[in-house]
Design a protein around this nucleic acid. Sequence first.
RNA 1: GCCCGAGUAGCUCAGUGGAAGAUCGCCUGCUUGGUAAGCAGGAAGUCGCGGGUCCGAUCCCCGCCUCGGGCUCCA
Length: 578
Amino acid sequence: MDEKLLKLRHSLSHVMAEAVLKKFPDALLGIGPAIEEGFYYDFLLPRALTPEDLNEIEQEMRRIVKGNIKFVRKELSRAEARKAFKNQKFKLELIDELPEGETISTYTSDTFTDLCKGPHVESTKEIPANAFKLLEASGAYWRGDEKNPQLQRIYGTAFSSKNELDEYLKRLEEIKERDHRKLGKDLELFHLSDEIGAGLVLWMPKGAAVRMALEEYWKSAHFKAGYQVVYSPHIAKLDLWKTSHHWEFYRENMYSPMEIEGQDYELKPMNCPFHLQMYKMRKRSYRELPLRWAELGTVYRFERSGVLHGLMRVRGFTQDDAHIIVTPEQLESELVNILNLNLEILRTCGFSEYDIYLSTMPDHHVGTYENWEKATSALKSVLEKTNLPYKIDPGEGVFYGPKIDIKIKDTLGRAWQCTTIQVDFNLPEAFHITYVGEDGQEHQPIMLHRALMGSLERFFGVLIEHYKGAFPVWMAPVQARLIPVTDKQTEYCRRVVAELRDMGIRAELDDAPERMQKKIMTAQHEKVPYQLVVGEREAGQEQVAVRLRTNEDLGPMPLADFKRMIRRIIDERSASLK
RNA sequence: GCCCGAGUAGCUCAGUGGAAGAUCGCCUGCUUGGUAAGCAGGAAGUCGCGGGUCCGAUCCCCGCCUCGGGCUCCA
């Protein structure tokens, strides 16, 4: 965000606070910063805000802005500041936490003075009165800590011109239209049923078709990259999770154990301990490494009810997981392999822009500082060698090791965390896994955890929003829909469907007692890539008239030509339709 | 989990302290139509669940559930 916009938004948050104080003179003030998409301010108020309140506050803000109010900065001593904000306990807390020697300043505009280091606009003259809007009120804990009192946060947004505001509001509308929950319902991709339980996904046939296409591609890409696929059960003895340290470090996300014949079993939140048991089935040689075991493993994690969100945040999900056992010498080159496979898979699925983060050692962790250091520098060096720009996320690693997280950017530029690549010295240690080296001695290998799509549920949610439901042909739930012009062509259409299905193409006949135009509209709404219209002319000449969901009409073509075209588009996993 | 808001037909959504509505979809009949909605008829609702107030509650009150927007956390 540029400096000008930042000043504008931050100044508006002060104007908003003034308006709120006029309405609620006893309001206690939290903080009120400018943010990525606007600004907010937190207040402790005597009652809950209503939408009408927001309206009134916004009107009052417009009145204030039009008054050409000056923003005046003043520096003061800690004692003066404490005195000035003696009735504002949250501000006092902030003052007391300012480090010794820090300049303390306030900004006064009109009747409102706030503890603030600035900067601000010179005067509200610089704020266009028609380019800001209050968006919503919600709850927010003081300082983001749920042990603290909950304040009411008012969000607003502001721009340098009405045009930009309108564009932003239009973008919000666009986001709403792409919402995977809405599209998932309209297109019958998935279903979340109260009676099944929150955060537990039912994949409807059309969503399942997309998933199968993804899984098929995923398997072939992994096969080429030297992976082997494995399967493991959904529950395991609680002791396994104690050995792995998950019970100690990850318990808050795990479900309560269930007792089976006097033994405690636990629903799996991760796949790794299973793969380690497979490794330990027998003695392993360095000649077998790197050992790459992949599993579409379904895990269950407890998530607080308030964080669940469609497919993006659920309680049961399938990771495209893999665990790779390497010797220390193989670590870096294997990380490069993973990154390459990852970028290839993401690109094929339509994503070519990313935000990459390197997450370092968290406070609560296992393992030696030395190992953490080694692992972190390996990740760093690989990112640098592959020329991928990244940011450091300090303290955000997993308890057993540092990680690279990749957020993919969709068509609207929104970032979604999917890929995670983690280095782990802990589990090999905890499970005492070894390999016999060239020297005949036992050594401890390093384990890599990685999920590229992340979870199929979230990845699917991102895909739905990215493509707005109009999936590339290779993923599309229905790839071709046969539309007879009259009933007389139904038999021919049935035969074409059978022939296409023989080729593995998801083709369907629309034999509803409706007119062709209606069937085209239905296919358009369902975003079916190819609508094959068949009238007397086509049926008589072994042809189909090909209409694309882009509304483009390719006209009649020999059925054999269409088959060749769709075969090629699918095999190339092309984003195009012809 | 917490704060705020919402829950009416399969979907989207009107509505009312006194007989529950529309559109699309679904079913039936007619229509056989050449690139985005043919005509007619019909079925469909425990008005989220439980309790309370009231002669009477889908509507008012209380509790719960689910969903949405946030806070916090994550694939």
